[in-house]
Design a protein around this nucleic acid. Structure first.
Lengths: 232, 232
DNA sequence: CGCAGCCTTGACAAATGTCAACAAACGTGG
DNA sequence: CCACGTTTGTTGACATTTGTCAAGGCTGCG
């Protein structure tokens, strides 16, 4: 594994505080791989053999049932995914596929569990990470259960704008069809939802969004830190 | 605190493996209280001062936004809730109210974090607990995003039947209005959903449910361990 | 250029929510 | 134990939201 990858991983909260020797042991068993776009990395229901880390690119976590499919989340560098399944040694609840060319680290789950047992700082870092993940999903669930699709889109745009620096113009960071799935609606419905936000000053041009009057949109969207602040 | 409460708590996975002295320290600062029904124990947005444990009764976790409200989960004995907020020292994301007369233990969050820092077994138990919680919410989210309300109800009935021992007859364990909220629909819609399941042999009489042909219902509901097995 | 995939749009259908009315169940105080 | 009022559940009529299907335009790429 290249030194730069090694250092990047080491700086993740999850690994930052663990003993050198344990980190080295984990990395010895790990391997880094470059995947093209649209590769299914893991499949829901299978045993969790590897903890994954996205170093570059992006990964879609999705789930299917009865011929329907939905995007649950997008993983961007640098972060891990399916930590919970790895720790519990339980089957994956979600599938994962690369959205673009991506650089992924795979660490054998067995190694992770082994180091978890002996490294107390690592165990504590995992607690923090899982608590964070848990809270994120709770927020997503509140978003789904308490808001209409129009409200979800409006709040998504506000979050995205903030994330992109707060300027009036910004780009969507994924395909509209996937955005629709993440927001829990169909692509057709998303198209119409964008139109439904025009009265609040939202202009759409391909993936470029312009929010003409932020206050107006916020009045409609009513963003709330207990739902929308996806950092905590 | 009565000895029997003390022992009940000690047997929880979360506390079973920790050092005696740490458990005792936690319990010293804790107090047990009996609450009547319909008492709001915590309010979303407030700082997480206490880790709560339900010893008896039941507690509804719910959330509100913009004059709407939804039930997120029900906590039954013996288990804890809002562990993630306690550990992260972050505001509650959900409110909690007693559904009936309930016996609740409150442990100051500060104490929990203090013991978490020094007791490695406790830290590991927290990991297991949080991973479990995380996976449960992911399942709930898949349920919401991949199924119609009729399908959610059908699968809920199957889970509930199984949970009640598997007999053709069983009782709902909460009010229909709350069940509706948990399943993400209105009470009126739930009423109609029950009727919609009649063709699959579901009979409703108050809170008593009869499933005449389990195979028929399952054919419709298509239960799936990656969504419905709420134990893992 | 021509194909393939995505996005949009319209017409329509299905699912879900809202409002109002009423019946049934429950709890309280007499 | 009953009477009363409150809450919950049900039902119907209707509105809104969301999904489905089909068609066409646009874009990117070989």
């Amino acid at each position: 594994m290249p030194d730069s990858d090694y250092r990047d991983i080491r700086t993740l909260d999850l690994f930052a505080e663990m003993a050198d020797e344990h980190f080295t042991a984990l990395m010895r068993g790990a391997y880094v791989q470059n995947f093209p776009a649209q590769i299914e990395l893991i499949t829901e229901g299978e045993p969790s053999d590897f903890l994954h880390i996205v170093l570059a690119g992006s990964v879609d976590l999705f789930s299917a049932w009865n011929d329907r499919e939905t995007s649950m989340a997008t993983v961007r560098p640098i972060s891990t995914f399916i930590l919970a399944a790895t720790i519990k040694d339980a089957p994956y609840l979600m599938s994962a596929r690369t959205l673009e060319k991506s650089r992924i680290v795979l660490i054998p789950s067995q190694d992770v569990r082994g180091i978890f047992d002996v490294d107390n700082n690592f165990a504590r870092a995992i607690v923090t990470e899982l608590a964070q993940c848990y809270r994120s999903v709770i927020k997503a669930q509140k978003d789904l259960k308490l808001r209409t699709s129009l409200e979800r889109l409006a709040n998504y745009l506000i979050r995205q704008q903030h994330h992109a620096g707060g300027g009036a113009e910004f780009k969507l960071d994924f395909e509209k069809r996937r955005l629709a799935s993440v927001l829990g609606m169909t692509p057709e419905n998303l198209s119409r939802a964008f139109k439904g936000l025009q009265p609040y000053g939202v202009k759409v041009n391909g993936t470029l969004i312009t929010i003409e009057d932020q206050a107006d949109l916020r009045r409609f969207a009513k963003p709330n830190p207990l739902i929308d602040d996806f950092s905590t």
